[in-house]
Amino acid sequence: MEKAIIALAAAIAIAIPAIATAWAQSKIGSAGAGALAEKPELSGTVIILVAIPETIVLLGLVVAYLIIS
């Protein structure tokens, strides 16, 4: 039972940040696509902006790992 709760906690620790990251990336991605239609030279900046929220899920990954280990 304890193992199951630990596993569930780890899953929640990574799942919620993953959803948050996806939500943030969807917003940035759609705004970025709009910006690229106007200024294609911004492609490098937009790629970086889309990658920025991934830190959230990485922090989730670290926390999940700490919970499991």
């Binding site: 830190t55 990485l58 670290v62």
Partner: peptide
């Protein structure tokens, strides 16, 4: 601190 933790992406 957030910047340093961000390098975990290399492992991930």
């Amino acid at each position: 601190v957030g910047n340093i933790l961000s390098y975990v992406r290399i492992m991930a």
